[in-house]
């Protein structure tokens, strides 16, 4: 009785998941979550991914080694000079690390999600340069709307054929991740 109930429950859940699955193929976990610029945004995304049930490995300064086991790559853009300083890396090294991850992910067919979740206060020339780099390789972008008031991310997304989803609140990025991963 209990087993039959469990099976019924499971199949109901499965049907529910299949019905809710978006037309686009869902992204696969585990995701490697890293920061481009060492602001705390990546840490926020890690928490949101956990809450969305997206299995992930979080490493703000991840290199190619950490990409080995990943089935998707989430890069959270946000430049913090103090964050870079605390991590002991300079801006050039950060660009080089991110570019190597993007090139490797692309060559292995690992989808890339670009995220900018700290809004207008986290815009600035270094952040913007990193966004330009990441959006060039990204398949999806999730951006807090107040960081896109000038249409910066809209233009980048159009230029590189990236699916852009805007959220009003940082916390809402979790629901977008949940959908992208078909959870």
């Amino acid at each position: 009785m209990r087993n039959a109930g469990t099976v019924l429950l499971l199949s109901t859940l499965l049907v529910g998941v299949l019905a809710a699955a978006p037309a686009m193929a869902a992204l696969e976990a585990p995701a490697l979550i890293t920061s481009a610029g060492q602001s705390p945004g990546a840490l926020m995304v890690r928490v949101l991914a956990d809450q969305a049930g997206v299995a992930n490995v979080y490493d703000a300064t991840a290199g190619l080694d950490q990409l080995a086991g990943a089935k998707s790559l989430i890069i959270v853009v946000g430049a913090s000079m103090k964050g870079l300083g605390a991590a002991g890396i300079d801006v050039d090294q950060e660009f080089a690390r991110i570019e190597s991850l993007l090139v490797e992910a692309t060559s292995r067919g690992i989808p890339v999600v670009a995220m900018h979740v700290e809004g207008a206060p986290r815009r600035g020339s270094t952040s913007d340069d990193l966004s330009v780099l990441v959006l060039e390789y990204a398949d999806h972008a999730i951006v807090r709307a107040d960081g896109n008031e000038d249409g910066f991310f809209t233009r980048l997304a159009e230029e590189h054929d990236v699916t852009l989803q805007l959220v009003e609140r940082t916390a809402e990025a979790g629901a977008v991740l949940k959908t992208l991963y078909g959870n």
Partner: peptide
Amino acid sequence: ALEAAVYAVLDLSAQGLHFNLEPSRQ
């Protein structure tokens, strides 16, 4: 306290209150 601060900022965000998060530095 950083982990708790992340949760707090996300909680505030869900209420529509944007807070920037700034880790304390040495």
